[in-house]
Design a protein around this nucleic acid. Sequence first.
DNA 1: CGATACATTTACCAAATGGTAAAAAACTAC
DNA 2: GTAGTTTTTTACCATTTGGTAAATGTATCG
Lengths: 187, 187
Amino acid sequence: MSVDQIIDSIFLIPNESKALLKENFVEVRYPKGHILLRADRIEKNIYFIQKGIARAYADVEDTEITFWFGREGDAILSMRSYVENKEGYDNIELLEECALYELKTANLNKLFLEDLHIANWGRRFAEQELIKTEERLLSRQVRTASERYKQLIKDHPDLIQRVPLVHIASYLGITRNSLSRIRAEIM
Amino acid sequence: MSVDQIIDSIFLIPNESKALLKENFVEVRYPKGHILLRADRIEKNIYFIQKGIARAYADVEDTEITFWFGREGDAILSMRSYVENKEGYDNIELLEECALYELKTANLNKLFLEDLHIANWGRRFAEQELIKTEERLLSRQVRTASERYKQLIKDHPDLIQRVPLVHIASYLGITRNSLSRIRAEIM
DNA sequence: CGATACATTTACCAAATGGTAAAAAACTAC
DNA sequence: GTAGTTTTTTACCATTTGGTAAATGTATCG
């Protein structure tokens, strides 16, 4: 996933604006297992995944609850930090060695107030994250864990290969036991 | 909730921009039980609640699943229609007689591309909806139905008075039976 | 390759939840 | 106020899920 692909997939903007925006994408690399964002901090950067896979989890009474997976092209951010400049609930762990684009929130915010096209790009970015988040919420509310597991296999078959099942069970809101049962049923 | 309060609570913008935006708020009234938005349509308007209360529900195999409640100050919109101009999953039912502000999405989109301040207002609007949606998702993932019910009483005590318990049970992801059990336990 | 650690499956029982139906309570409309 | 409708509670049993622990399978590293 190139910088251009990422920017264009969100909203098409004129070349001058795009150049201003592109300047802020800095490529960084981290190893598998690296904790990129922490729940107890106000995070100053957001990221886009060029290559690799990550998860977000919340610490709840001595267990981790995974509530998001991200892969190539996805944005990594603590929404709370990004939007309200407060501590969030999300820890981000890289599940593979990752190549990322790093952007400073402060720089982005400055551009938003200076450039109409970039402001609209930022609006579209938030709107698209909103749609994705609502979809996750709906799927959780409307479908059973078993249905959502099947959906996951269908939509992202590689994810089951690349991610430990413990995290997938947690993501589905069930125990590893129950996930094993579901997997056994299907075959 | 006045138009000014609603606009200002999202993002402060200069008076000229605000005047342009305000022109688009049209007050409308509908009776209790009115279906404001439908899942099978591309909705062309969004609303803010001046007075009253509403719920969003999805039709799933001959049952309705409530996944959102809105009250004074909240925005009512089919995210899918607003963001992607596609049919959404949400039906909106007014649970009381409501006074609403209606805005045409097309007019808003035009303003977004013409006025930097309004574009940023639209960005903040999406960002704030994003935070709220993520919070609902997290709460669902992390807390039990019982905990979430207690939280609901604490945060919005009036809601339990104003909304039939069937909808609250559905919102919490449990049956009316289980909600009754929870309520019985608490006392 | 082998030893160790970690992840996953299976089995068992306990606890929580759903479904149906009937009783009680609350709300509507005349 | 009363009859009728709708909503909520309660009780029962069937089903699903969780928790613990042991067994199997898979990775990792010297």
